[in-house]
C-alpha cells in the first residue's frame, strides 16, 4: 500500500518499451509555444546555415524542395509529459544541409521566426536523426505546429524541434537557447528524463 494518492488506479499500463519515463500517451497533437504564431509565406521562407568562420549557405523554399526528400515515422515526446506515437513526416535530413561544411564546431544554435532559439550538439543533427520537416500526415505543416517548416529531432524532447526554423548557427561554444536559459535541461533526452537543470 502506497502512502501517496490512495485509491488512484490509473489507466491500462501503456507500452513500456515505447513510452519514456514520466510520459503519457495521447492521440491529440497539443500545441505549445511561447507567443503568437508567426505566419511565414513559403515565398519569403529561407534557411541559412552559418559556420563559426562565417561561411553561410542559404536555401529558398523551392531550393529546399529540390533536395532529396525523406518520409519518416516518429514518436514525439514533449517535456509537458505527452507522447504521441507514429507521427508521419516528410522533410530533408539535416545531413544534406550540413554535408562537407568546413567546421570544427560541436554545437548548433537553431533560430526561429518569432525569436525562439534552442541549442543542440551538432552530432545530434547528423546521422539521419534530424530533419527540416515541411509535411505532416500528408499535408503541409500547419503554422501552429511550426509550418511552413520546422526542425524535427524526435530523439530529444520536442522543445528542441524548433518551429518556424530559419537559421542554424554552428558554434564552438555551447550557447543555451530560450528554454535552456530559464531552467530546462541543456540536452533533453526523454529516456533519461532530462527535463530541467540538474536532471
Amino acid at each position: 500500500m502506497t502512502s501517496f494518492s490512495p485509491g488512484f488506479r490509473g489507466r491500462a499500463r501503456p507500452l513500456a518499451d515505447r513510452l519514456p519515463p514520466g510520459q503519457y500517451p495521447t492521440e491529440a497533437f497539443p500545441v505549445l509555444s511561447t507567443g503568437p504564431t508567426p505566419h511565414v509565406p513559403t515565398a519569403a521562407w529561407d534557411l541559412t546555415v552559418t559556420t563559426e568562420h562565417g561561411e553561410t549557405r542559404r536555401w529558398t523554399w523551392d531550393g529546399m524542395m529540390e533536395l532529396p526528400q525523406q518520409d519518416t515515422v516518429q514518436d514525439l515526446h514533449c517535456v509537458t509529459r505527452w507522447s504521441r506515437f507514429d507521427t508521419r513526416w516528410r522533410g530533408v535530413p539535416l545531413d544534406v544541409f550540413l554535408e562537407d561544411l568546413e567546421t570544427a564546431a560541436e554545437h548548433v544554435v537553431v533560430e526561429s521566426h518569432g525569436g525562439y532559439t534552442t541549442n543542440l550538439p551538432l552530432a545530434d543533427l547528423l546521422g539521419g536523426r534530424a530533419w527540416i520537416a515541411h509535411t505532416y500526415d500528408g499535408h503541409p505543416l500547419a503554422p501552429e505546429h511550426g509550418g511552413p517548416a520546422r526542425l524535427l529531432v524526435p530523439h530529444l524532447y520536442l522543445w528542441k524541434s524548433a518551429k518556424w526554423v530559419r537559421a542554424l548557427r554552428l558554434t564552438t561554444t555551447n550557447e543555451p537557447g530560450f528554454w535552456e536559459s530559464v531552467g530546462y535541461h541543456d540536452y533533453g533526452d526523454p529516456w533519461r528524463e532530462q527535463r530541467t537543470w540538474g536532471d
Binding site: 500500500m1 502506497t2 501517496f4 488512484f8 488506479r9 490509473g10 499500463r13 514520466g22 503519457y24 509529459r81
Partner: peptide, 13 residues
C-alpha cells in the same frame, strides 16, 4: 505525481 498500489505512476502539470 500520483502512484497506484502497484507502483504505476502518472504525472500531469
Amino acid at each position: 505525481r500520483l502512484t497506484a498500489d502497484d507502483g504505476y505512476q502518472a504525472v500531469r502539470s
